[in-house]
Every structure is written in C-alpha cells, then in structure tokens.
Design a protein around this nucleic acid. Sequence first.
DNA 1: GATTAATCATTCGGTAACTGAACTGTTCGG
DNA 2: CCGAACAGTTCAGTTACCGAATGATTAATC
Lengths: 168, 168
Amino acid sequence: MYHTNVAQRNNSRPAEEATPAFRSVAFMLSSLGYAVSRRFHQILEPLELEPGEFALLRAVSASDGEPQNALAERLRISPSWMVAIVDQLERRRLLERRPHAHDRRVRNLHLTAGGKKLLKRAEQQARRFDRQVTEPLTETELLQLLDLLDRVAAGLELAPGAHAALRG
Amino acid sequence: MYHTNVAQRNNSRPAEEATPAFRSVAFMLSSLGYAVSRRFHQILEPLELEPGEFALLRAVSASDGEPQNALAERLRISPSWMVAIVDQLERRRLLERRPHAHDRRVRNLHLTAGGKKLLKRAEQQARRFDRQVTEPLTETELLQLLDLLDRVAAGLELAPGAHAALRG
DNA sequence: GATTAATCATTCGGTAACTGAACTGTTCGG
DNA sequence: CCGAACAGTTCAGTTACCGAATGATTAATC
C-alpha cells in the first residue's frame, strides 16, 4: 500500500533541522499515517499478504459467505479491483468463490482452512505491531490519543466504523 | 498524493457497524493520515499544485538558491523524480534553475515572483486546513495531541524534523 | 409473459506516480 | 592528466490502481 505523502516518499536519512513556528497536525497525521502504513506493509510481507488482502480476509472471516459485491462496498474497493484481489487469494487457496444458492450472478466468499490459519497469524502480527506503535504511551495516554483521534476523525466526517477491517 | 490505505481506498459511503474489542492506533493513524492527505490534495487542487510541488516550493522558499540535489535529499525525493517536478514548475514559471557560479554541474533553484505569490496562497490554504482539522479540539487538547503523536513518531524512529516541508 | 432495466462479476485498456539503471557533462583527488 | 565521483537528466519499466464496456442473469414494468 502506498500513500503519496504530503512531503513525498522517503528512502534515505532523516533531515536535521526543523522550522518551528507552526506545527501542523494535518502534516503530522499524514506523515505518521504514511510511516505506519509502510511499516505495516513490511510486517505483512513475510506472510505474502498485501494490507488490502489482509483486510479482505478479515472481512470474509467476519461475515463468511457474504457476496463479493457486498464486501467490495464495505471495504470501498472498486468491483474490478475486488476481482483482482479475490483472484489472487483464490489462486493461493486462502478463500474460495462459491455460487449463490438462488442468484447465479452472485459469488459468495468463504475462507478455506488455510485462509483461516494465515489470517490468524496475520492478526497476531497486527496486534504485535500495534503494541509496538503505542509502546511509548501509558495506558491512559493511549486512551487519550484514541479519543483525540476519534474526534478529529469525526470532524473530518470519517464514519467511526469506516475502514473497520483492521479493527478487532 | 496517494496512500494506499491499510483498508483500501474510499469512494463511497460510510460503513455502519464496527467490531469493537480492540482499537488499533496503527489503523486509526493510517486511516486518518490517508483521509487528511486526500483532503489536502483537494485543497491544493484549485491552485493546480500537487502536495509534492507545494513541499518543493516551500523548501526552495526556505533556502533560496539551494542546488537541486541538496533539496532532493532534504525532501527525500529521488533525483529523477525531482527533475520531473522541477521541470513542471519551471514550465509554469513558478521557479527557475540558474547555473551555479563555480560548478557547472549544479543548478540552483530560485522562486520567481509568481512562485512566491502562489506559495503564499497555498500556505494560507494549508493553515486554514489545519485549523479545520483541529477544530474539534481545544487549544490544550491540540497540544496534547501533538505531544502524543510526537512520542509515537519518536518510537517509530521518525526523525522529528523529517518531512519538515509542510511545517511553518 | 415479453421487453426493458438493473445488477454481479469480469475483462481490458489506460493512467498516475513513481523507481532504477544508464548516460552526459563536469569536477576533483592524486 | 587520468580515473573516480558527482549533478542532473533520460528512459524504460513497475505498481496500484480506475472506468468503461461486456456477458450473464435477475427484477421491474407494461
């Protein structure tokens, strides 16, 4: 996953000085979000999962047998992109498409045993990662941070349940 | 700018329910960072500036006459990508390459009058946007949030001055 | 009950945002 | 003055998508 950052990508070393004056929360969030996304991508790399694939596995696991279409909408993936991801995961036998009982247009998605197993491992990694990210904070501070972020998100009219794929 | 989000991009409507249990800060940061990046991109759209271009204009403004190379390193842009951006901005007469006095390999970058003017407008928009993002918070909370984010960033070994382009 | 409209999944062609390797002209260290 | 190093540039490729068109099927309307 990518995120063309407000200030562009980073390959190399930290820059030194900062111009103080005004500290932009927006910029901070953008940078941090970018960094976190990248790390998470790395975390999943050994499992050969893209973050989007992880999200899909989670979603399928949460509501087994849901049609492809409904999932695409919930995850805000375009149908064509959905096809690509599902193809990929089906090829790896992590999930499968099964015909809908009464509507032959619809494909229901189900995790395979292998899919469940891999998902479990990925979720463990995700939790570990989250603990690592929040490691500098006390429990109280963590809750405080979540609250503040929630409120900023609410201000941006980001639905609280949106992108729920990673939660749990 | 983009940011392939942990849970994929969004076009459409909010999803409703959320599975509680465990609230991932990493996920939250990723989502918010993504949302903020996108909004900021939209903010700059009327000025026909990409966030990366904005960052470059800011950097040039902050240290006028700096060689292209040094700027690329500070902004963590690859040299070839730097060329593309500078080409674009020079074509629009927002900045110009001038030969270095003693090294004919080097091109020094300078803002034009038009560049300065546009940058000023963009900076105003950026501030306005930041105020909008932090609108749900009190002044104290804002400082709290910055502090918490700083510490998370430090834990991720994100240099404090890194991506400083948007600051100020 | 026959059209017509809508819907699900899919294919395919394209695009934006890069990366990396190779090249040119120039300078610097020995 | 020779070779390594370097600034800037070019170009061909990659990744991660989007959107319009298509085919098969089902629902809606007359």
